[in-house]
Simulated scan of single mutants.
Amino acid sequence: MGKDDKEDSGFGFKDKAKAEETLRLLEEHPLNYRRLTVRGLLGRAKRVLSMTKAEDKIKNIKEAMQVFENWLEELDKNKEQKTDKKPEKKEVPKKKEKEDKNGDDQDSSSDSDVEMEEKAKKPELPPDTVPGLGFKDKETADGTLKELEGRDPDYQKLAVKGLIGRAKRVLTCTRDETKLSNIKEAISIFEKFLDDFDSMHLSKQNNPYLSLGIVKTAAKLTENVTEQQQSFIAAYSSVNGEYKRLRTVTAANGEKTWDIVRNAALKELKEKHAEAKLFNDKDEPTTEHLEMMLWAYSPEAAKVKKYVPETKEDKKEDTENKIEDRKRRSSARNDDDSASKKKKE
């Protein structure tokens, strides 16, 4: 990836702040892409250091490199931990293996059926990127900005920067004058959007998501849960707490997606509870605070994570249900066999 592509995407290593912004922008991309990009930026940073004499620039670039190196180190550490936790494969006794092959072990057969059914039932998660975005011409650019309206500000900026980068790459391999003119008009519209975005400090309006587990805990701490909030929590659960996928999950009204509905609701609540106390003397969320937490948001997310436990999925109950289901299958199979024998007799 060339220099222009990196700058178009907003990635860089000018200083510590730029490096942190780069990592935040990269969160929208697959892990392998993020790793390769960070390593590439480190390589470029080292080359720039070898040609730079200004002390302040050297200091800033070194701080940016440290941010990237820490990120890579943390990534490798997490990878090692996952590898260490990988369970060892137990050797199946020959007798048991023979029984499985002969089909005499009905429980094992039943397990296989359940697993196959579970896989068949497992729904595919919706995509996490908004469809219909483009840079073909002025109309397409206007439609793109309309499609991004009301969504998370950070996502809007990232999407537009990505489109500008792609548009500029297309320009280098296009000769048709009409197409060139149309794409340049689209780029101009996007660049104006970014200028307005920065001048109005719209990033401050971003509403970072609390985890699904904390949202479920908040729902248990209050009786004042509206139908709309219940529907939002259900939608958040349906995507397994992967908030980016809410961009393509339509809300109950069938018109807007949940990310847009959430931001609109939070805008009202943030104005309404601007002066409200968020925690009581026992470090418990107040009623006003819980009202925002039900939308997976808190002005003091770090403190919420510290004092509010996450509600975990009840895996024990799920396992018991599967065991009971297997027992019923096995019992039904035995009953059928008995009935068949009696009929023959």
Results as ranks from 00 to 15, higher is better:
D5L: 14
G10M: 08
K16S: 10
T22C: 04
P30G: 07
N32D: 15
R34T: 05
R47L: 11
T52A: 05
V67A: 06
V67D: 04
E69P: 03
E73Y: 09
D76L: 10
Q81H: 06
K82E: 15
K82H: 04
K82T: 07
P87M: 07
E91G: 04
V92E: 14
K95P: 00
N102G: 09
D107T: 12
S108Q: 13
D111F: 13
D111N: 13
D113R: 13
V114Y: 04
E115S: 09
A120I: 04
K121H: 07
E124M: 06
G132A: 12
D137A: 09
K138P: 04
D142Y: 13
G143W: 05
L145A: 07
K146S: 11
L148I: 07
L148P: 06
P153L: 06
K157L: 05
A159K: 14
V160I: 13
I164L: 03
I164R: 06
K168Y: 09
V170Y: 05
R175C: 05
D176G: 10
L180G: 11
E185W: 01
F193S: 03
L194C: 04
L194F: 05
F197Y: 13
D198I: 04
H201F: 11
N206A: 15
P208T: 07
Y209Q: 01
S211L: 03
S211V: 00
G213M: 01
G213R: 02
G213E: 00
K216S: 00
A218D: 03
L221C: 03
N224H: 11
V225S: 02
T226Q: 01
T226G: 06
I233S: 00
Y236R: 09
S237G: 08
S237P: 00
N240K: 14
Y243V: 13
Y243S: 14
T248I: 04
T248F: 10
A252E: 15
K256N: 13
R262Q: 09
N263D: 12
L269Q: 11
H273I: 01
K277I: 12
K277N: 10
T286Q: 08
L290S: 08
S298E: 03
K303L: 13
Y307L: 08
P309L: 01
K312P: 01
E320C: 06
K322C: 03
D325H: 15
R326N: 13
R328H: 12
S330M: 14
S330A: 12
A332Y: 06
D335E: 15
D337W: 07
K342L: 15
